[in-house]
Design a protein around this nucleic acid. Sequence first.
DNA 1: TGTTAAAGTGTTATGTTATAACATAACACT
DNA 2: AGTGTTATGTTATAACATAACACTTTAACA
Lengths: 156, 156
Amino acid sequence: MHSTQNINQIITHAETLCKSHGARLTTKRKLVLSSLIQSGKALSAYDLIDLCKENFNENIPAMSVYRILEFLENEKLVHKLKLANKYVACSHITCNHDHGVPQFLICGTCDHVKEISINKSTISQLKNDVEQAGFQLINSQLEMNCICNSCQDKSA
Amino acid sequence: MHSTQNINQIITHAETLCKSHGARLTTKRKLVLSSLIQSGKALSAYDLIDLCKENFNENIPAMSVYRILEFLENEKLVHKLKLANKYVACSHITCNHDHGVPQFLICGTCDHVKEISINKSTISQLKNDVEQAGFQLINSQLEMNCICNSCQDKSA
DNA sequence: TGTTAAAGTGTTATGTTATAACATAACACT
DNA sequence: AGTGTTATGTTATAACATAACACTTTAACA
Ligand SMILES: [Zn+2]
Ligand SMILES: [Zn+2]
Ligand SMILES: [Zn+2]
Ligand SMILES: [Zn+2]
């Protein structure tokens, strides 16, 4: 997915982003973010504990991992997938465009997640449908259970 | 939401549906379904334990409630909301049209849930967007965080 | 009617995800 | 050094969910 070099670049960029508004990307936070980026998948907080131990021989308690994930989420470096109770690194850390509300395609077979921006027109049509039903859409972050083409091909 | 009479009608109908293919809507299953219908909301399994105790003075252990919810879900009498880890009674138990894939609008303020069928054109547009991203939508059950008009009005 | 297999339920233990509450450590600034 | 703030450690517990096995009821059938 990403080479070590790439990951370091992303981390460096993330650190710059944090610094630019006085937030600190500490060592532990870097370890969690690195692990998540490296995996290229959606992981649970407890998966991340194991991975940090494996990759860096660092024991980070569950509580800390949750706090770190919350921090990273606020920084838009990580997204929480509520469908799966898992966390995924943002695909656009090094992009400079600002981060709209994302949608996620989750492959149920291999756990890979693609972060996309659905066509504005689809979203507004959806909003319309929702309003017709007497509700207002608060959050257009959609999470969809999918199968990725690669897994599809394998099973065919 | 529903009068006791209405609920009984729905339960009776549900029982007929179950019988029609040899499934049994037992007493405990009825209690869980009734409680869920009566509440008019999305409830967790543990909420339902409390409610069955309250409404019917029946102690149903967690394990049983989960099994019962699974049964009811298979019978399409109940839907599981994965975003919220909660369960909601199907709005169309007494309808005779067959049950397509539903979408859910969840009011984050009052927990009320509306089960809708989004326009086919919106769904197909969504499917299209997903395919363009190299994924196949497995399940078009969408769950959306909303605020209902009633709660919106109150807060305005 | 008695036998039996399947379905349903009870019970206990355990796994998984997440937060509360309180303490200590590290850092930034005076 | 002193002080306030942020981050992390620690322990406990809440909330959601499944596994495994025993016991009971039901429906079917000889
Ligand atoms: Zn992102
Ligand atoms: Zn896949
Ligand atoms: Zn339904
Ligand atoms: Zn509401």
